[in-house]
Amino acid sequence: MRIPGLRWGDAVIAATGAGLVVTAFILAWNPDAGSEGRSLVITQAGEPARREPLEGPRELRLQGPAGTTRVDIETGRARCAESPGTQNICEGAGWLSTRGDMAISLPNRLTLRVEGAEPAWDSIHY
């Protein structure tokens, strides 16, 4: 197909645009960049959120309305080791290591969430 009125400037603009797209994809969608967890954010009903660095090994004991939730923290990951919930949903979340990973204990009304260097996006709406 012949395109009428094509000039050398068109090629320059098209090449610049393509380069911009490729660079943007490499910079923004590099899967390794900032995906590692850096800190654990603990929110508990009625208390301000606290942030614990993912450095350890150490153990946190969080008191809630149903009892004690025990949290294991190691370098780069954390898990809900023991929680008063009868269905073990909090423990079932396993090790949380990637940003956005979450564990929730409903009886103790708390959430554990891993955050990276940059906040992750969990959904996009239009």
Partner: peptide, 15 residues
């Protein structure tokens, strides 16, 4: 200013 001598409609549209 560069159209149509150096840039055609295609380049203008992409930009």
């Amino acid at each position: 200013p560069f159209a149509p001598r150096h840039v055609g409609a295609t380049g203008l549209a992409i930009a």
